[in-house]
């Protein structure tokens, strides 16, 4: 452990790395998914929306349990991953990223979907009649006009992953430098009755989260003034 100089640096950096990577990957997955959900006239749309929203209501232990089963060497994802030449996913950082993506999916999909739905078809139609191809219209009109939705999605996805605990514990365990993220580290120190250390880590996370959200609200506020 090399986190003696600054308390909890390694777990904090690991948490940031996990949250950053998870959010980044989720944006790429959520964009087409949110677009499809916002445009489809499929009768099963409510079902798909309900599935996307599931992680909002399920206890993290339930998701964690199923992810553990799926990611394990005998599970569907774990087996395929090993088949493609990967290492075991359970109790690894990669496994954590995959599990976190499931866990934070609704927090990224929903703001983007809302932004797309708020735009409506109208603005697309006007882009088409001005000669923009459907894909071009998406990048030149839909994406920039959905910037607020993306900002919300980024922050919620990031913050939510940062604060996750149950899934990390079940899928990733508690391996220092690998899967021991900050929330686990705090739990550890509390269990060992090392309250002062837990205080430092908790306060650090609290301040960091506050600053992050403050930044977002400031940006949002400025946008609102401008428009």
């Amino acid at each position: 452990m090399n986190d003696f100089s600054i308390p909890g640096l390694t777990p904090l950096l690991l948490s940031l790395k996990l949250a950053g990577l998870t959010t980044l990957l989720l944006i790429f997955i959520a964009t087409p998914l949110a677009w499809w959900l916002s445009q489809t006239k499929n009768g099963f749309k409510p079902l798909f929306e309900a599935i996307v929203a599931l992680p909002l209501v399920l206890p993290p232990t339930v998701i964690g349990f199923y992810m553990l089963v799926l990611l394990g060497p005998e599970g569907f994802i774990g087996r395929s991953w090993i088949g493609m030449g990967g290492d075991t996913l359970t109790f690894s950082f990669t496994g954590l990223v995959i599990a976190s993506m499931v866990y934070s999916l609704p927090f990224v999909v929903q703001p983007i979907q809302n932004a797309f739905e708020g735009l409506g078809r109208h603005i697309l139609e006007s882009a088409w009649t001005l000669g923009a191809r459907p894909i071009g219209a998406f990048f030149s009109v839909v994406l920039p006009l959905s910037a607020k939705g993306y900002l919300t999605a980024l922050v919620l996805g990031f913050a939510h992953t940062l604060g996750e605990f149950g899934i990390v514990l079940m899928v990733g365990g508690n391996i220092p430098g690998k899967t021991r993220v900050i929330s686990i580290a705090i739990y550890d120190h509390v269990e060992m009755l090392d309250y002062s250390y837990a205080h430092k880590l908790s306060a650090g996370l609290l301040i960091f989260s506050l600053l992050l959200l403050l930044g977002v609200y400031l940006i949002n506020h400025r946008w609102r003034i401008r428009t």
């Binding site: 603005i123 139609e125 088409w128 009649t129 000669g131 009109v141 006009l145 910037a147």
Partner: peptide, 20 residues
Amino acid sequence: LPAHKRRVGMVFQDVRLFDH
């Protein structure tokens, strides 16, 4: 022909300018 290939200039009742 899809709309973007028709060379048609359309003006809508609700204007639909791009706010960005």
